[in-house]
Design a protein around this nucleic acid. Sequence first.
DNA 1: ACGCATTCTTTCAAATTTCGTATAAATATG
DNA 2: CATATTTATACGAAATTTGAAAGAATGCGT
Lengths: 239, 239
Amino acid sequence: MDSEIKEPIQLLLVEDDVNLSYLLEENLRAKGISVSLAKTGTGGLELASKTIFDICILDIMLPEMDGFTLAKALLEQQPSLPIIFLTARVQEKDKLLGFEIGADDYISKPFSFKELYYRITAILRRVNLVAPAHSENENLSIGSLVLYPAQRMLSVNGEQRKLSQRESGLLQMLLQHNGQYVNRSEILKKVWGNDDYFTAKSMDVYITRLRKLIKDDPTLEVENLYGTGYRIRQNMANI
Amino acid sequence: MDSEIKEPIQLLLVEDDVNLSYLLEENLRAKGISVSLAKTGTGGLELASKTIFDICILDIMLPEMDGFTLAKALLEQQPSLPIIFLTARVQEKDKLLGFEIGADDYISKPFSFKELYYRITAILRRVNLVAPAHSENENLSIGSLVLYPAQRMLSVNGEQRKLSQRESGLLQMLLQHNGQYVNRSEILKKVWGNDDYFTAKSMDVYITRLRKLIKDDPTLEVENLYGTGYRIRQNMANI
DNA sequence: ACGCATTCTTTCAAATTTCGTATAAATATG
DNA sequence: CATATTTATACGAAATTTGAAAGAATGCGT
């Protein structure tokens, strides 16, 4: 049953049963999965606000915040985060609720670790298959702007410039979202790798810089949505 | 429980129990999924050689060719075809074998159709054929008013305006309730996150503001039910 | 019908949070 | 070491949210 896990998978485990969580942690680690453990719902949310996880396993009955509520909150932060509920609750109603929220799987205790592991890999297989949808280095464009992420090269109105990693990463992220707003914290986690006050300040600086970079094309603008994030779009009204 | 299926899904169902297959077929069709049915393993393989399926549901005990063998053959033809085993076999050994072959899910009978459907959509979501669970950001409208929650953009009579988080949240909540009264405390808990005297006062202010925002369309009104809450509705008598 | 308590409406002025930009310091890179 | 990149700090500006106050409407008991 050995598997094809490519990169170190970041897994969030929220489980208050110490014995179970210890067991899972050990077994998952043995499979090369890096586990972050929280014992309470709020603890799990806290962890997820700082790190991007590839998948999470949630108990339902948890101190402070139940697993359903936690799942909703997590999905708000990361809409495509895969979620597995792992719980003693076997009622059909609970199971359906779990799926309704957007879970990928719902496993009732007791279960075998092997099965859990298979279910995890089944989900990750699909996620990885789909992820390359915007293949990491696909060239992106809007208006007269073209970004070549592989070369970290930016072209605006024919003028070319090399970008730094952060500049390129930030712009790429905005472009990948096709004019939709992107959360500040999503950007921070993806481009900077972590989300705290100081990194956020740093990002502000890069937004300013990005605006300077694109101002050769007056139809382009980086728009802020107060308290949420940014988007890049073409606005013909600007000319 | 409606998830938004993007395109007509082609599903292959291989099941020799006529009653069950009929039931499934009916229910899946009702969900907008197009079902191709085979009663034997070889029959299923035959169908798959003629059509590209988005997903398949396989029984294990089948005439002519068992489900495991069929699954392997199908995967050889279409390596990324999602597979769900649906079977009376509950033995751990069988389940693990199913996953080993590369199944996405393994459901033991008896099961509810709802659960099956959720599990199907969970998989299709990862394959990008179904919109993310809870398009929390579905656009909402009433009269000439349209709210675009993702952009926090409000359009009334063609006039567009950006809304603040509270403004948008409040309006969204009222709109989601379709003209029904919503409890003050429900709104407070959902939009403000807590429900105390001062937050309530704050909400009053936002109700006032909301009324100003919508008054370009004289048919719209935010109505209060004393001691209970608010609703938004269209009232033609207002003109 | 009247008074009284509660709830609602509205306005306006703080207070708070978030954002934008400049500049300096630190760190990485060749 | 020189240069490019990134992070830190500072401060003003803008947007949002809250607080406070005063008047209006509603429900309720008498």
